[in-house]
Computed example of a mutant assay.
Amino acid sequence: MTGSAEPGEGDGRVAERVRVLLVDDEELVRVGLRMILEAQPDIEVVGELRDGGGAAEAARESRADVVLMDIRMPGTDGVRATAEIAREAPGSRVIILTTFDLDEHVIDSLRAGASGFLVKDTPRAELVAAVRVVASGDALLTPSATRRLLAEFVRVAPPAARAPVAGPLTAREQEVLAALARGRSNAEIAADLVVSEHTVKTHVGSILTKLGLRDRVQAVIYAFEQGIAAVPGRRPG
């Protein structure tokens, strides 16, 4: 997928650059992001917007791989814009930018289809790495962030309605999904189940396909909404 290889890697051909769309109402933030990203040989900023309105259309027309999306903007905010992108430009993945770290707005954006979130004071190297990770098709959610997300999710977010499961999960897939919801990494799940990391990745891919979910973030949220994993701090029954 676009952005998954370093420039010049492999057979000598130049890898296609990761295409990034910036959506933030603060011009200085957009300028800073552009300077950081365009200093990278494998990343190209293909557009800027100061409002979430029109972000889905811009993402589709620019063929953006990644959208860096401010969560709080006048007009159309990041949550609504993320939902529109997920629906109208599914080839573009959203990273939410927030000043306030993890709160109910971030949770709403993840539910809407974002592939991860970053605080605006994230070091530049981590920002660049995050863009590459999400462009490669992975979700930007570390095990520690998963655990914080779930604790906050339980505190502020009411259950959301979900369509019936698209296909039945096997017993092993249910184990893997529950482990994802506990914030376990692929390596930790592999060790727990005494299988290879490749096998775990295969199970995760199957889970996403059967449930009609975009990525690991959506799988974690689904697991909690469906009661597949124990809620932190909540007694069963």
Rank of each mutant, 00 (worst) to 15 (best):
S4W: 04
E6P: 00
G10I: 11
D11L: 11
A15E: 10
L21E: 09
L21Q: 10
L22T: 14
L28C: 00
V29E: 04
V31L: 14
V31A: 06
L37T: 13
E38R: 13
E38M: 08
Q40L: 01
P41W: 06
P41E: 11
D42R: 04
I43K: 04
D51I: 07
G52E: 14
G52D: 11
G53I: 00
G53T: 04
E57C: 00
E61I: 02
R63E: 13
R63W: 00
D65P: 07
M73P: 10
G75H: 02
G78I: 13
R80G: 09
A81Q: 08
E84Y: 01
E84D: 15
E88N: 08
G91V: 12
I96E: 04
T99N: 07
F100S: 11
F100Q: 14
D101R: 06
D101T: 11
D103I: 07
A112R: 09
A112K: 06
G113K: 04
F117H: 15
K120T: 11
T122Y: 00
P123Q: 02
R124E: 15
L127F: 07
A129N: 12
A130N: 09
A130S: 15
R132F: 02
D138I: 00
D138M: 04
L141F: 03
T142W: 01
A145S: 11
L149E: 05
L150K: 09
E152L: 07
V154G: 09
R155L: 15
R155Q: 15
P158I: 05
P159A: 12
P159D: 12
A161I: 03
R162H: 01
V165F: 00
L169E: 10
L169V: 10
T170I: 06
A171I: 06
A171T: 14
A171G: 03
A171S: 10
R172M: 12
R172Y: 02
R172N: 06
E173I: 01
E175H: 02
A178L: 02
E188M: 04
D192F: 01
L193C: 03
L193T: 06
V194C: 00
V195E: 05
E197R: 09
L208S: 04
L213T: 12
R214G: 00
A219F: 04
V220Y: 07
V220Q: 08
G227E: 03
I228G: 00
A229W: 04
G233P: 03
P236D: 13
